[in-house]
């Protein structure tokens, strides 16, 4: 097994700082010394593919080449980066004339790429490389009685579907159960949060997130757990607008799975980015202290 180069992407350096602050110590605890991919560039996200797919594949090709030079695979915690890098990897390997041209361009600027890099998401690594037993063994403070709604969103489980089901994935639920929490039957787990549409067409974004929040509330979840920066952002930020528009207050914390894992592993609670939550977390702390 190759080592992983950590590819934060722009979000984990911006609004999703708490994802970075929790994923790194958790993976360190599990024996992965993650080093940031040297001089990585933005993956282009969904926007770039809408403008020019060749450009999108080329800028991702630079990242893939950088990782190949380091002899590593890529670990991408952002579902958007994960999908875009994987898509570009596939594009560059499809043997088409366009792909050949892009590879030649990369070679010309000392970024030769031979298709040797795999792109993985931390959840995928937890399931495939680490295993639930090892995770369980690391738990110091099981999150007994904490009801979690595991939200997978879209781009981690679709269209690449090798490690979990595209419609009803279960691996995040399994990880949460391994750290002692109780996953609720969250039937909206792969329903779209709207992605960047929450910023561009407000009406649509508010409605979609309302459905997700309502379902979490109906299942009496204490917290929504996410694996993607944009999902986390949307579900948290939108609660204000939803309260205004639908006259319904939620105040459901939206946290990264790695934050809860760190907590269960007994890592320093103050260094897992909880202070970055906009929704107050005090009910959550009370619940955890009470043990459900």
């Amino acid at each position: 097994m190759k080592d992983y180069a950590y590819y934060p992407g722009c979000s984990l350096k911006g609004n999703a700082k708490h994802y970075e602050e929790s994923i790194l110590p958790v993976f360190k605890e599990l024996g992965f010394a993650l080093e940031e991919l040297e001089d990585w560039n933005c993956c282009g996200a969904t926007a770039y593919f809408a403008v020019d797919d060749r450009m999108a594949a080329a800028i991702c090709g630079r990242n893939l080449a950088l990782a190949e030079k380091e002899g590593k695979d890529i670990l991408a915690p952002c579902a958007g980066c994960y999908l875009t890098l994987r898509k570009s990897n596939q594009y560059l390997a499809n043997g088409s004339e366009e792909a050949q041209k892009i590879l030649a361009v990369l070679k010309d600027v000392d970024c030769e790429y031979h298709g040797q890099v795999k792109v993985k998401h931390p959840l995928e690594v937890l399931i495939q490389d680490v295993g639930l037993k090892t995770i369980q063994a690391k738990v110091q403070n099981p999150l007994v009685g904490l009801k979690v709604a595991c939200y997978y969103g879209c781009q981690l489980v679709r269209p690449f579907t090798e490690f979990d089901d595209p419609d009803y994935p279960v691996t995040l639920d399994q990880v949460m159960a391994a750290i002692g929490a109780t996953p609720v039957e969250y039937s909206a787990k792969t329903k779209c949060c709207g992605g960047s549409l929450t910023g561009t067409i407000e009406e649509v974004g508010t409605q979609l997130n309302y459905v997700l929040l309502k379902e979490a509330k109906r299942k009496e979840a204490d917290v929504i757990v996410t694996i993607c920066p944009l999902c986390q952002f949307n579900l948290e930020i939108i609660q204000n607008k939803v309260a205004h528009k639908f006259k319904e207050k939620f105040d459901i914390p939206v946290l990264y799975f790695s934050q809860l894992m760190g907590l269960a592993f007994g890592l320093n609670k103050y260094e897992l980015g909880f202070k970055r939550s906009i929704i107050p977390l005090s009910p959550l702390w009370e619940k955890i202290q009470r043990g459900g």
């Binding site: 350096k13 911006g14 282009g44 926007a47 770039y48 561009t200 067409i201």
Partner: peptide, 22 residues
């Protein structure tokens, strides 16, 4: 629709700096 604007702005930002600043 502002989506093409978002796509274009993101494109420009990446071309200039290599990363996007939210």
């Amino acid at each position: 629709f502002t989506i093409p604007v978002l796509a274009r702005e993101m494109y420009r930002m990446i071309a200039k700096n290599g990363r996007s600043s939210e």
